[in-house]
Amino acid sequence: MPPPTFGVKLLEAIVDREAGFSWDGSAPTVAEQVRNALVLDHGVDPDQLPGRVLELLTTYTELLTVPARDPGSYDRPGVSEGDVIFGEIGCADCHTPVQRTRPNAPPHLRDLTLRPYTDMKTWDLGEGPFRTAPLWGLGHNIRLLNQNGRDLLLMHDGGAGSVAEAIGQHGGDAAAARAAFNALSAGDKQNLINFVRSL
Rank of each mutant, 00 (worst) to 15 (best):
R131W: 11
D188R: 07
P50Q: 14
I167M: 09
L109K: 08
Q48R: 13
H108P: 03
D16E: 12
F195G: 04
T118S: 05
Q99M: 13
L38W: 01
V53F: 10
K9A: 07
Q33G: 06
W136Q: 04
D41M: 04
G82R: 13
L114D: 07
D75M: 05
V30Q: 05
E62A: 00
D93Y: 05
E127I: 07
H42G: 07
P67L: 02
A164L: 12
A37D: 03
G137S: 10
R17M: 08
Q48I: 01
P107M: 06
F130K: 03
H95V: 01
R150H: 09
S185H: 00
L11F: 13
L57M: 02
G168K: 02
E55H: 04
D83C: 07
V30P: 01
G171K: 15
L57S: 01
L154V: 02
Q99S: 08
T65C: 10
G137E: 14
H95C: 12
V53C: 15
V44T: 14
I85G: 04
P2T: 13
P67S: 15
H170L: 08
A164I: 15
E88R: 10
H170K: 00
N141G: 09
I89Y: 06
G128A: 12
N104T: 10
A27R: 06
S185I: 00
D124I: 08
P46I: 10
E18Q: 15
G43D: 14
I142T: 09
G87T: 03
V66D: 00
E55L: 03
W123K: 11
I193L: 12
E12G: 09
V53M: 12
P3I: 06
G149A: 13
G78L: 04
D173P: 00
F195H: 09
T58H: 09
G20P: 04
D70L: 10
A160I: 08
R131S: 06
R131V: 01
L63V: 00
V53L: 14
I14G: 15
Q190E: 13
L49F: 07
A27E: 10
D124H: 13
L192H: 10
S26F: 09
R52K: 14
V34G: 03
R17C: 01
D45Y: 03
A37I: 02
V34P: 03
P2G: 11
R52V: 00
T59M: 00
G139Y: 04
L184N: 12
A186G: 07
L145W: 11
G137F: 04
D24I: 00
P106L: 00
S80I: 11
F130R: 06
A19M: 04
D151L: 15
V163E: 07
P103Y: 04
A179N: 06
L63E: 14
S26H: 12
A164S: 15
A68D: 10
A174C: 10
M155T: 11
P134T: 15
E55F: 00
W136V: 01
G82H: 11
E18W: 14
W23Y: 05
S26W: 04
C94M: 06
A177K: 05
N182P: 05
G172L: 07
R178C: 15
G43Y: 14
T29R: 08
L40S: 13
H108G: 02
L56C: 06
A164Q: 15
A186Q: 09
V196N: 01
D41K: 09
D16L: 03
G87R: 12
R100G: 09
